[in-house]
Structures are given as structure tokens and as C-alpha cells.
Design a protein around this nucleic acid. Structure first.
Lengths: 213, 213
DNA sequence: TAGATTGTTAATCGATTAACAATC
DNA sequence: TAGATTGTTAATCGATTAACAATC
């Protein structure tokens, strides 16, 4: 990997998509693909594909193209998907349930080890085999288990306070589903999933299309 | 609103965020805000805020700033949030449950009217008061109810087939939670929520930060 | 009116696309 | 070797930022 160069976020956001398509190709038994063929499939220009990949190294071979399996593996490595991650989730509501289930069933390498709640009626139960624990015990849990990632599935009112606690306890990243922009120390990564922003953006495009008729 | 000008997607994606902050300000009883004050709050440059807003019209007043309530209302109008939307959801799993619950409880103006499933054991039940119906009856339901938006909460295997059916039945937009890129006719809007892409992007940043230590 | 702040034009920056020499 | 396709530099395009005249 090229050292020092700072990669733009636009590139990073395309990597999982490259990886996804490469996974599908692999499943179909495709061995190699040229940037041109890949372009037709994934919808980015061949030029962009080559530029993107060359941020991280020369994974192709002139006159041949890219080896599908190797490239998939390289991108997995770049993203950090060859490591294991320990997670905790805060907020045992419907969304928390869905995310726990999603990770448990579909994301190998990621394990939700504890779900934290304030509602005493839920504490002690399990969700998809993951224990629901007292929110007050979260910091100690994270410190002991060396949790990597905290997932916030609370309402917006408590999200910042939860984030503060997660950071204090030492998580490296926060996956935030609450509709707020969290203030975090610079060394903690954050990724927001703002569902309503996404829905509103969809609605804008629906209306735009209508008005273009 | 300026006619004809095509607004970039980057601008559209900032609108919900502007609106969210304006809503908070309104709740706090703030009447007016300058682009400079807003900049400090929201983290975009004052210049960008003014540029963005002027894509749609001159909502401010020289020497004064922007009226919080009016601007909130204008942005709601631009996004199309003054209309009502009828939705259906496909896939009554955990994620479908969470999304139904989320829309029912937090998003006024949006109503999930039916949840469609293939699993016969679920058909006939309700989820948050919304009936779970036979997937085979979906097209007729959408045609009758003039459904605006279809939400796909199925696995990736069936997502495209569901999308085709939604389009055939006449929805204007699709909110897609399945990890695939759907092929849709040009007049149907789509918004993807690719959870794993989001998680992978987070993980990249976690590792990047580690390596910068 | 004077001061403040917008709306808008111009300058800059960054990301995408095109071109082509290197090379398998 | 000839053909194909990458890696990489250069050109273009678009988005962000800066500057300032207009105006409340």
C-alpha cells in the first residue's frame, strides 16, 4: 500500500461496492476481469476503477486485467475485514434487534457481545443469543472485553451521552443510528446511518421526477 | 424556486441536515440565524450554506440573516415533506419490523399501509398495527391504494424481483435495504441503505486511525 | 444612514475522465 | 512479437470557497 497518501472518502465509499461485485463474480466462477468489463458491470468508468485501485497498489497485470479472487482479498485487507471485531449495542428496541440479528447472521468477523439497556424489564433477557445487560455496567464491560465498536440504537436525546460513555470506555469507532451528529474525540471514528435523511432524499427525487414529466 | 437548474446530489443530501438543525433551533426558540452562525453550528462553510440555499431561492434577508421558522418550512417544501406518502414494505423480518415501527412512530406524513410476505405463517398477523399480507396480492394493493413508495427489506436474492413488481405496480420510489444495486426504469427513484457498506467504511477508518498512531 | 449579511460572481480546489506510455 | 490492458500523467469537469457588490 502506498504510504502517506491520504485517500479521499469518495474512494473509501466505493471500496465495499467493488468488494461486493468481486464477491459475486467469484461466486459465479469468474477468474479475471478487466477494468473495462468491470466498468460495464458496476457502473463506474474504467478509468475511475483503475485510479481508485492504484491508490492502494498495483493489483492488476498489463494485458490481462485483474484476478478476481486476489482483488477481492486485497480490498478485504484494505478495509480491515481480515480482522475480528467485538461490538456492543446500546438500545434494545426494534432497530437494535434488527441490527443485532443482521450482524449475527450475515457478518462474519463481527460479533455483538452485549446489548445495553436502561429498561429494567429487558435486562437479563437475550436477543438472538446476545445478553441484554444493565447500561450502568457498560464501561466496565467494554474495558474488560476490549470492545472495538459501539452501535448506538437509542433515541436522539441520549445518543450523545451514550457516545461519550463509549469513548470514555475506549471503543475505536461508533456506528450511529440516532438522528444526531455526535461530537467525538478525533481518534474515534464514526459512521452515521441517518434513516430519515435517506428517506427525505428519496422523497425529493420522487417529486423532482414528477415535476419533470 | 429557480427553474431548470439541475441541483447536484451533494446539495440534496445536505438539505435534510439543514432542516434537522433548523428544527432544533426552532424548538429552542431561536428566531433568526446568519449563515455565519449556522456555519459554526452545522459545520459547513457559510459560503456553502448560502450557495446551497440559493439554488432554490433567496430565503434570507440582507443585513439580517435567515428566519429559522421560514427556512425550515421552505426546506420542508423543497424536499416534498408537506405531502403525504403511502408506503408498502416487503419482508416482515427484523429489519422490516424496525423500519415499520420507525416510520409509524417518528415520521408523520409517511404511512406504511401494508407489509408483504411470502411466509404463510406470518400472513394475517399485524406488525405495529400494519397488516401482513400475501406477497401475491401486492400489485393489486399498490394499484388500488396508489402507493407512492416501496420499501425492500428482503434478502438480496429476491430484491430485484420485488423491485420489478413494485415498479410494475406503479410506485414512484424504492427505499432499498437489500445489499444489491437494483436495475430500475428511469422514472422510479431509488435510495439505498447498504448497511454493510456503511459498517465496512467505519472499519476502514478505525484501522486507518490505528495506523496513524 | 451605517452596519450587517445576503446573493452572486470569480477563484480555487479536488475529483473524475481521458490519454498514452509502460509492460505483461 | 503483437495485442491487450494496466498504471500514471495530463486535461477536464464540478463542487467548494473566497470575495464583494447589492441591499435590507
Amino acid at each position: 500500500m502506498k504510504k502517506g497518501a491520504k485517500i479521499s472518502n469518495a474512494v473509501i465509499r466505493r471500496l465495499p461496492r467493488y468488494r461486493r461485485y468481486l464477491g459475486e463474480l467469484q461466486k459465479k466462477g469468474v477468474d479475471k476481469i478487466s477494468s473495462n468489463e468491470f466498468s460495464k458491470l458496476i457502473g463506474y468508468t474504467a478509468s475511475q476503477i483503475r485510479q481508485d485501485l492504484n491508490n492502494f497498489g498495483g493489483f492488476g497485470q498489463q494485458g490481462y486485467g485483474y484476478n478476481v479472487k486476489d482483488l477481492h482479498s486485497e480490498i478485504s485487507g484494505i478495509l480491515g475485514l481480515k480482522n475480528k471485531y467485538r461490538l456492543v449495542l446500546v438500545g434494545a428496541g426494534n432497530l437494535g434487534h434488527a441490527i443485532t440479528n443482521y450482524i449475527g447472521n450475515y457478518r462474519s468477523g463481527f460479533a455483538v457481545e452485549g446489548i445495553f439497556e436502561v429498561n429494567p424489564e429487558m435486562i437479563g433477557q437475550t436477543l438472538d443469543g446476545v445478553p441484554i445487560l444493565d447500561y450502568d455496567s457498560m464501561v466496565e464491560f467494554i474495558e474488560t472485553r476490549k470492545t472495538d465498536i459501539g452501535i448506538i440504537c437509542t433515541g436522539k436525546e441520549s445518543a450523545q451521552e451514550v457516545a461519550d460513555k463509549l469513548c470514555f470506555a475506549g471503543v475505536k469507532g461508533i456506528w450511529n443510528f440516532a438522528p444526531v451528529d455526535l461530537e467525538l474525540p478525533g481518534h474515534v471514528a464514526v459512521e452515521n446511518v441517518h434513516l430519515s435523511d435517506s428517506l427525505y432524499s428519496l422523497v425529493y427525487h420522487i417529486n423532482k421526477m414528477d415535476s419533470n414529466k
